[in-house]
Simulated assay, not measured.
Amino acid sequence: MKNNVKFDHNDHAIINSYKSILDGLSLFLGDGFEFVLHSLEDLDRSAIKVVNGQFSNRTEGAPITDVAMQLLKEIKKSGDNNKNMVYVNNQNCRSPIKSATLPITGSNGKIIGLLCINFHLSIPLHDFLSGFFNIFDEKAIKPINENYATNSEYLITSALDVAKAEVHNNDKITASNHNKIIISLLYERGIFELKDAVHIIASDLKISKNTVYLHIRNCSKQA
């Protein structure tokens, strides 16, 4: 079919990488949102990932929609491959759906897929709220303290303070091993990927940078 897009290896890798994104969006937003990932490699069976398809009864292998085809034509006409479409879908006078169709680009900037998001406005309010505000379900969402640092130095020192507190409050860790364990915790949390982390941590712990590097090497061997 002439409208199908010819994929290369990179295109397959890019389009498939979006599958886990749909699962993550569903976990974050709840069951009130339907997500469909379309691949333009085969328009007759373009839906390669469907999450919460119970609303529209769509499943993997479903064809592309007429609205999606319209968007692709508009993109081709305008030459803007980043054109998004957000609209209200009346779905033949049934319950309205707030929808978004977002293009996915692959090799050489060509459009290889579409990410479609549908919020069905008829969903009962308690179902929407229980899905969207599921922050108290620790089995679904793990509580984590995330640091929105304004610069990398603050991020490093904040992470260092947390690690020091963990180690100093653990009576099972001997004083001679404090620095070793602190550096190990920071290594596990990726802090040494940041510029100047070794210098800042060595200065705070009052040890040499070589000592920090020694502990890092030992951590990498155990990883």
Rank of each mutant, 00 (worst) to 15 (best):
N3Y: 09
N3V: 00
N4V: 03
F7M: 08
D8P: 06
D8V: 11
H9A: 09
H12C: 02
I15W: 07
N16W: 09
S20Q: 09
D23N: 08
D23M: 02
G24M: 04
L25V: 04
L27H: 12
L27R: 15
L29Q: 04
G30Y: 12
E34D: 00
E34A: 03
V36S: 02
L40S: 10
L40Y: 08
L43M: 04
D44M: 09
D44E: 15
R45F: 09
K49T: 08
V50N: 06
T59S: 10
T65V: 08
D66M: 05
A68H: 10
M69C: 02
L71F: 11
L71E: 01
L72N: 03
L72E: 00
L72A: 01
N81W: 03
N81F: 08
N82T: 11
N82H: 14
K83M: 15
Q91D: 07
N92S: 10
N92Y: 12
C93S: 07
R94Q: 09
P96G: 11
I97D: 01
S99Q: 12
A100F: 01
T101Y: 04
G106P: 14
G106V: 11
G109T: 12
G109C: 10
G109R: 14
K110M: 02
K110G: 04
L114K: 07
L114P: 08
L115K: 06
I117T: 15
S122V: 01
S122Y: 12
I123A: 11
I123P: 02
H126E: 03
G131T: 03
F133T: 05
F136I: 01
K139D: 09
K142H: 13
P143D: 01
P143H: 12
P143W: 03
N145S: 10
E146R: 14
N147A: 04
N147P: 00
Y148V: 06
T150Q: 14
N151D: 14
N151I: 02
E153Y: 13
L160M: 01
A163C: 07
A165F: 07
D171F: 11
D171K: 15
K172R: 14
T174G: 10
T174Q: 08
T174E: 04
S176Y: 02
N177C: 06
K180S: 07
I182Y: 08
I182M: 05
L186H: 07
E188M: 08
G190D: 02
F192K: 09
F192V: 11
E193H: 11
L194C: 03
D196E: 06
D196I: 00
V198I: 15
H199K: 15
A202N: 10
S203K: 14
D204I: 01
L205H: 02
K206F: 09
K206C: 01
K206D: 08
K206V: 07
I207N: 11
S208Q: 10
S208W: 04
T211P: 03
Y213S: 11
L214A: 13
H215I: 06
S220T: 08
K221F: 11
